[in-house]
Design a protein around this nucleic acid. Sequence first.
DNA 1: GGCCAGGTGATGG
DNA 2: CCATCACATGGC
Length: 281
Amino acid sequence: MTEIIHLDFPYDFERVLDRLSMDPLISLNKEERYVLVPTRNRVIYKVLATGTTEAPSFTIEGPPKLIEVQSIKEIFHFDRSLHPINAHFENTNLAPLFREHRGTPIIREFSLYSTIMKSIIHQQLNLSFAHTLTTRFVHTYGEQVEGVWLYPKPETVAQLQVADLRELQFSTRKAEYVIGVSQAIASGELNLDALAIQDDETITQTLVKYRGIGPWTAGSFLLFGLGRPNLFPLADIGLQNALKTLWSTPEKPKAEEITAHFPEWSPYLSYVSLYLWRSIE
DNA sequence: GGCCAGGTGATGG
DNA sequence: CCATCACATGGC
């Protein structure tokens, strides 16, 4: 089945591909402008760009399953217009930032579980080494379907020993976090799908009870796992650095100096976060 | 060699 | 409740 999609808002797929290509585990082709996306049922969909930024169109190829196709649309932000967001920032101090990143959507992670694993692995590590660890993790304990790598199942990781992940050069702490959270998910104690319908605050409170999940990781889950629109992870060092550069201040801004702008930026804080991260890449 | 990285938990006041 | 510190390891 091939579904054809036309969007009535600007959408810059080249930038999406550039961003996705930083993740070595994602199968894509820049020249041919497509991404292969695995869904929860271990089926692969091909998302192919056929239009331009100003006249975006796409095809989604894969089995004709309504729920799966809908989840693909959510992952790629096809289901929400960027017009209201662009309009919202036109008369703010961030207008140049939003013009620079026009047509940049929030792309979600391909699964809720992988969002958390990836976040824990990325904690406090440079991107290069984080990618090395994530790749080893997936290649060792995940599986391949039609050439696309899938993250391991929680059930698989739940049965690992700390030593197993130490071999991949995880720190002891990181290994404990990854296995512990996987055990909670595998046992059914933590149900990410059920959690997904709660509000931001409830989700955060639930997640931070688990060792290895702090405010930053909970924020990542909301922003990149669920695509929630109004998140700004204050503790994130990258965002602080981006604002320091944008505002040309000698020091990184303090939390209060950032939150002072929240009324003006809400309810689209996530887009501010996203474009700030892009601005320092 | 030292500082840093898209942090977190434990500890002490 | 907050400030501070150990943790762990590659990249630069």
